[in-house]
């Protein structure tokens, strides 16, 4: 009987935990809004975070973009050549990179690099009582820790996505011309014919929202870390897993929503 009750209670408890988690995230958003609109902007810390998050993540997103572009080019070529339309690869690769591949894959990579670092750094500060030290010195942890990271991610992520797209296209051009002997002119003509600047805006807009998602989830995990090193490890793992899952789910809804504003194949 008790096992049956436990089995029935489990989904309910999980749902309540999920609601509680959403409530905590909502509270963090409210604190952040207060910090942004009624507190002072911390430009210096924001600049430091842009260097750490944006500048420091370039290698990761460049490699991700380049090899995604390269492998997508190769796979497309293997199938497209059966139909004799391999010269159109540039079009499909650029649109896919702009709208889905670069934002999602670079977003996931940044989640792993930046989200984990945020959760670990803030979590370590939490268990070492450094967060409480901020509070006793009259500094709200959200003002000092979350606000600069929030702005840094909002600024960095769209640019990182754009960089990822550029290197993805460059790699695609290289692979198609060097490995598959498709003249660059044909490749580029199809890129220009099928890609609009709205596709780039589409990807960068996704990056903007992914940045917000990653920073909120990761900072929340850091700020709520407990139980020493184990708690920091758990918080870091959760930050990456929750951010990655949320990114994939939100990506679908963003695709549906943004396609309404920037339909495929149209310019502004």
């Amino acid at each position: 009987m008790s096992v049956l009750v436990e089995m029935l209670a489990l989904p309910g408890r999980s749902f309540l935990n999920f609601l509680s988690y959403l409530g905590q995230l909502g509270r963090l958003v409210a604190d952040l809004a207060h910090s942004i609109f009624r507190g002072r902007l911390r430009i210096l810390q924001m600049a430091e975070q842009i260097v750490g998050i944006g500048y420091g993540s370039q290698a990761v997103v460049v490699v991700t973009g380049a090899f995604t572009g390269a492998v997508f080019t190769a796979q497309s070529y293997f199938k497209f050549k059966d139909f004799g339309i391999e010269t159109t690869i540039g079009g499909i690769v650029s649109v896919s990179l702009c709208r889905e591949l670069a934002p999602v894959l670079a977003g996931l990579m940044v989640t792993g690099r930046v989200g984990a670092a945020m959760a670990a750094e803030i979590g370590t500060m939490k268990v070492n009582e450094e967060i409480d030290a901020l509070r006793v010195m009259g500094v709200h942890p959200v003002d000092y820790l979350v606000q600069p990271r929030f702005f840094a991610m909002m600024i960095s992520m769209p640019l990182l996505i754009a960089e990822s797209i550029v290197f993805g296209l460059a790699a695609s051009a290289l692979v198609s011309s060097l490995a598959f002997h498709i003249p660059f002119t044909w490749f580029w003509t199809h890129v220009v014919d099928h890609t609009n600047h709205t596709d780039l805006i589409f990807g960068m807009t996704k990056g903007f929202f992914f940045g917000i998602l990653i920073v909120l989830i990761s900072c929340h995990q850091g700020l709520t870390a407990a139980n020493g090193a184990v708690g920091v490890g758990l918080g870091t793992t959760r930050a990456v897993v929750f951010s990655s899952l949320a990114l994939l789910v939100v990506n679908f809804f963003l695709t549906m929503l943004l396609n309404y504003f920037f339909p495929l194949g149209t310019a502004l």
């Binding site: 500060m125 070492n128 450094e130 030290a133």
Partner: peptide
């Protein structure tokens, strides 16, 4: 002012 047991300096 507050002194923490472990000092809680910023690392």
């Amino acid at each position: 002012g507050y002194l923490f047991q472990n000092a809680a300096l910023f690392g």
